[in-house]
Nucleic acid binder design. Structure first.
Length: 338
DNA sequence: CAAACGTGGCA
DNA sequence: TTGCCAAGTTT
């Protein structure tokens, strides 16, 4: 691991921020001001999600709910509808809980430090540091995947970024480098760097504005960074989804309030061990495949009758079209039309 | 701490 | 087709 002198640190800050001022993505909609609400919404949406995916969601969300008070007072169903298809739906529920906490418990007064911001549901070490630095000027590093990748290469940090304990190693390494005058811009510049020159795949460090500071590139070992152990493969699961139609309505089932897609409506889903267990009229030759982070669902659609239970309901098209449905359910609905 | 938690893009 | 990646947090 490399250590930088105070002179190197100052050169790095200047080089980075000069580049950011010239070529940073200043037009991103969450960078038009430093409103903590706008920043928080963007940061939550951007968790594990790419900028291009977030952009249309963010614009629609801010149009519908422009202030933290609007979000606090909105029906949860509206928030989930705005989040439909974005995934990791607990983010949406927690975001509204956070808004309600700020409005109801803090009377609209935002926590202004990273430590205090972490009381908000869904706001962890990264997001709190991002909001604190961008909106309130706190000098803290926002250690996200970009920061891991960028600084593991610049400083040749060998800690495994898949391990939680590595977070402190990076935090401590980056903290003295954060620009005390522009901490928010510093953090966002690192993110821009990580998504342009210092990418995960096919990095272009040769043309990077901070090439001179890149120890891994200098030593020809950039490919080795960041150090990251592999994730395990998704578990394969076989499901039978039931299509039950009655008077132009379709039978939906509400998922349990914990676990995967909790609280969302789907066709009744039954896990099966093999396709011999399929009963009813099979609707497709091929199954619908849907992959989650840790599961791979292979779903066979069948047409059959099913008894009503307390978590099942026949819904008209107008009813289910106004619900927030998970993408896997949209796939099933689309498959029905084929 | 390891595992859970969505989805889309790309090599 | 498969694996990996993308502005993480919660339990």
């Amino acid at each position: 691991m490399e250590f930088w002198s105070e002179e190197t640190i100052e050169n790095f800050r200047r080089t980075l921020l000069d580049w950011y001022d010239r070529e940073g993505r200043a037009t991103l909609p969450w960078r038009v001001d430093h409103d903590p609400y706008r920043v928080m919404v963007s940061e939550i949406m951007l968790q594990q999600t790419q900028v291009d995916t977030v952009l249309p969601y963010y614009e629609r969300f801010m149009q519908a709910l422009p202030t933290v008070q609007d979000l606090a007072r909105a029906p949860e169903a509206q928030v989930l509808k705005l989040w439909e298809g974005l995934g990791y739906y607990s983010r949406a529920r927690n975001l509204q809980k956070a808004a309600r906490f700020v409005v109801d418990d803090l009377h609209g007064h935002w926590p202004e430090s990273a430590d205090d911001l972490q009381v908000l549901p869904g706001v962890g070490p990264y997001t709190s540091a991002a909001i604190a630095s961008i909106s309130f000027g706190e000098v803290v590093p926002a250690v996200d995947g970009n920061a891991y990748r960028v600084f593991s290469r610049l400083l040749k940090i060998d800690a495994d970024i898949a391990q939680p304990k590595s977070r402190k190693i990076f935090y401590d390494a980056i903290l003295p480098i954060v620009d005390p005058d522009r901490p928010g811009d510093f953090n966002q510049a690192i993110m821009d760097l990580g998504s342009s020159y210092m990418t995960a795949k096919n990095p272009n460090s040769a043309d990077s504005p901070v090439r001179a500071f890149n120890a891994a590139y200098r030593d020809g070992v950039e490919i080795a960074y960041p150090v990251k152990t592999k994730k395990q493969r998704p578990v394969k699961q076989l499901y039978m989804a039931t299509v039950s139609e009655k008077d132009g309505r379709l039978l939906f089932e509400k998922r349990p309030d914990t676990g995967l897609l909790s609280g969302f409506w789907t066709f009744p889903l039954e896990e099966i061990q093999n396709i011999e267990q399929i009963v009813g009229e099979q609707l497709h030759i091929k199954p619908i495949v849907h992959v989650f982070t840790h599961r791979r669902w292979e779903i066979w659609l069948v047409k059959r009758d099913l008894p009503l239970t307390d978590n099942r309901q026949y819904l008209t098209p107008d009813q289910w079209q106004h619900l927030s449905l998970p993408t896997v359910q949209h796939k099933l609905l689309n498959a029905l039309e084929e």
